[in-house]
Design a protein around this nucleic acid. Sequence first.
RNA 1: GUGACCGUAGCUCAGUUGGUUAGAGCACCUGGUUGUGGUCCAGGGGGUCGGGGGUUCGAAUCCCCUCGGUCACCCCA
Length: 429
Amino acid sequence: MRLQAPKGTRDFYPDDCAWRSYLLDAWRRVSVRNGFEQVDGPIFETLDLYKVKSGEGIVSELFHFTDRGERELAIRPEFTPTLARMVAEKASSLPRPIKWFCTPNLCRAERPQRGRLREFWQWNIDILGLEPPLADAECIFTAIDLLAELGLTPEQVRVRISHRATVKHILSRIGVSDDKMLDAFNLLDRRDKVPPDEFTKGAAALGLDEPTVARFDQTCRRRYDANDLAHLRRSIGMEDDSDTDELGALNEQLKAFGVADWCEYDLGIVRGLAYYTGTVFEVHEVSGAERAMAGGGRYDQLIELFGGPSMPAVGLGMGDVVLTNVLIDKKLIPSQYAPRPDAFVLAASEGAVAQLPGVVASLRRSGLHVRMSYKATRNVGKLLKDASGCKARYAIILSDDTDAAQLKCLDTGEQRDVAITQLAKEMKQ
RNA sequence: GUGACCGUAGCUCAGUUGGUUAGAGCACCUGGUUGUGGUCCAGGGGGUCGGGGGUUCGAAUCCCCUCGGUCACCCCA
């Protein structure tokens, strides 16, 4: 019988784990410095929790099961319902605004493909209890802070921003009635995936004629520079600022945060489900070779939906899979992302073997990352090869002299005698 | 869940129109050059050719099923 990892899952060998830690550390570091506090919840929830937000249709997309007490449960496919539940439960006692982050692993029962697996890690940041546009801008700023932290530039990745209200105004103006607004959003979202005639047919069902649809389609395909909102206003025939107020206010905040260069407006960004209420955005690699690196937006009604008070909210999620693909594409994988040993201790003579454990123990107790040779050979050349092989900063060569050792810097090749009691002190300098 | 392509050592692959004990490089392990590092030399472990069934005297090679991978659709919370 052959046992293999389930479809769409990954094994994390030491190198893979080191890489994952590199990402998780970056996510945490950036979150913390932007004022977010870490939270987490259970890895499985009651199935109903996910139905509240997404309806019955969600069930086929997630891993669910029944426990021995006949309870219907599901492995978390996203963190937002858990977050909404947690916030709703303690809403009255939590200091505002609530700024939380987490880095959960999530599971979705989808067919794996590039950038999409059945188990993945996702960075979530959410700001609740704070009104737009400041919260939206800070959320986007934090995402950009992370991208920059990993070495990405505005020439390589962009935040594409849209606003439900703006798109709704446009749709309304060209003749879409309120009750067909959701259908219009869906059609907009799918415009690149359906055949042209089907698109026209769908538009006709919304009461739109062909020239109007064409003009609208064209408008939504263009991207507008974040520093030139007026251009967008002219293009959509809305010289009157009131219809793009929200976007204009967000634009001012993004400029104030100094990240306008990373942002552009793209009214074609719809973001699936109907629960987004205002700003929506995605982070994309510019060439379009990869799928969206992150997605998010404002969801002002969700906490209420989960039994809490009315509370404004904005958040985003960024998965490890696409992010890693992009960093590989852009050659931004650092040469060293695993913890580097401070020292590698080796015995160059039979007489030195007995000293090994004591020296290693002493250095480790002083807080240093120390490895040693387990080999029987006393061939210093071979042992040094192992030392450099594990990327150690220093090699410590023990000989028959029980008072001193040779401390060799493996980066420079420089070597000198150091008293064994002084080794830790010397290396920390 | 639907469709298309793919599947030989840990990794990258070779394997002649189906023909005898399935190979290379890298990686890994051991030893040597009688104490200074990503060399060099020698040796070694590791594959029931994804798995199962069929055709054939004979299958890594042809056919079917299944599992997994890749890509598109669905979906993207």
